[in-house]
Design a protein around this nucleic acid. Sequence first.
DNA 1: GCTCCTAAGATTGTAGACAAAATGGTGGCC
DNA 2: GGCCACCATTTTGTCTACAATCTTAGGAGC
Lengths: 233, 233
Amino acid sequence: MSSTLENALRPADAEAGADQRVTDVIRDAIIRGEYVPNQRLVEADLSAAFSASRATVRTALLELAGEGLVERLPNRGSRVRAISVDEAIEILEVRIGVEGLCAAKTAASLTDEDAEAFGRLRAAMIESVAEGDLVEYARLNRYLDVRVRELSNHATASDVLARLHAQSVRHQFKLSSRPQRAKVSVWEHAAIIDAVVARDPDAAEQAVRSHLLSVIDALRDISSSESGPPAAP
Amino acid sequence: MSSTLENALRPADAEAGADQRVTDVIRDAIIRGEYVPNQRLVEADLSAAFSASRATVRTALLELAGEGLVERLPNRGSRVRAISVDEAIEILEVRIGVEGLCAAKTAASLTDEDAEAFGRLRAAMIESVAEGDLVEYARLNRYLDVRVRELSNHATASDVLARLHAQSVRHQFKLSSRPQRAKVSVWEHAAIIDAVVARDPDAAEQAVRSHLLSVIDALRDISSSESGPPAAP
DNA sequence: GCTCCTAAGATTGTAGACAAAATGGTGGCC
DNA sequence: GGCCACCATTTTGTCTACAATCTTAGGAGC
């Protein structure tokens, strides 16, 4: 994930049009942080960078605006949408309800195979944290999220969550890279898995709620310590 | 993202460019039911109908696709997205969490003036149902929704709700036009107002949940009676 | 020296034309 | 008579050029 060049050199997907390719490349660049928040995205520049026409780039920007990743000011161009900590907290608050719903649905209709898979995932998460492998932990973390969404079989909720998640990856990243944070959250994740595996929808919803409330607290802590305490002797 | 969605609730701005106007006109047509679900939206036709260029229409369709009102199949055009009853129920399930959050936030920070306004709204709703004025009741209903969203001061939740609401207006309409349904739901709405006015966030969240669960039940009933019972002697 | 006006530059919005893809129908072939 | 390939039509995707709009810099007037 080093540079745009890598993407530029990657062979074009045969099935997707140039439109989709450009959209994906820009989206990746935003999510990876290559395009920083509030950075202006000038259509002509992108057009030159990807050697696509301005119309194609424009379409891509429109789509990304629909996903909430790009902000479009009429007659004044597009920029990478900046998600403040307050907004990130808002997103987490919304996720409480929606992910809670997914977890409950998943718990209500879990197959034995999936239950076992979750058991293995639980063990793997605990192990990765014990070994201090935060990258692997983050990966399993995402996998848990995605898997719960999939198994909930709830297209609307998945959609809403995908959108919200894409917007807040950067803040997620800030948290997941802290070892002491992982040691707390891993048990919250274990609790979610336990409730789901126990086929207890209410417990699953509550476990998700507790976890996300804890994430909100952690985010508040970090942001207040980042911006610095009002006065330090 | 918020700018487009907020415009959905607002009458068309005169100052906005042709782009925005065309988007608004098409959106209204879809929401009003002038363009029926699954109807194809051919760019050239719309372009002629609104005497705008195809590029403008294309932009509008892209935006509406982002709002979930239009479905775009690659190389095969756009159509009005059809929301099945199952999807409408999914949307209501998601709304439980998000509107619950809004109600709780509103309850937590309600001013005395707003509390009084809610009291008057409560009385007006009950009166309109008693008089059998379903149109007025539907209007007050929407107003309650919008007001709770506004006062919650939660941009993310408002955004998500605006999107979900726009998609399911047609199903909402089916319900709200039934007198016997109104007689039940008016007390659920009263309960929501009571909890909010009492500044009790948990009660407000629960009242919203009860109400939406009841709406889901009603929707299930209607759809099953519409499609006809499996066997009738 | 400051403010307001004007004009040039940069950037987005709109238009029309061409290219590519998918659909639907027609004819030939088995 | 049914099935497959092919071609015409329709519709979207892409491109280039032009118009409208916003921003910024420079200068005249007070």
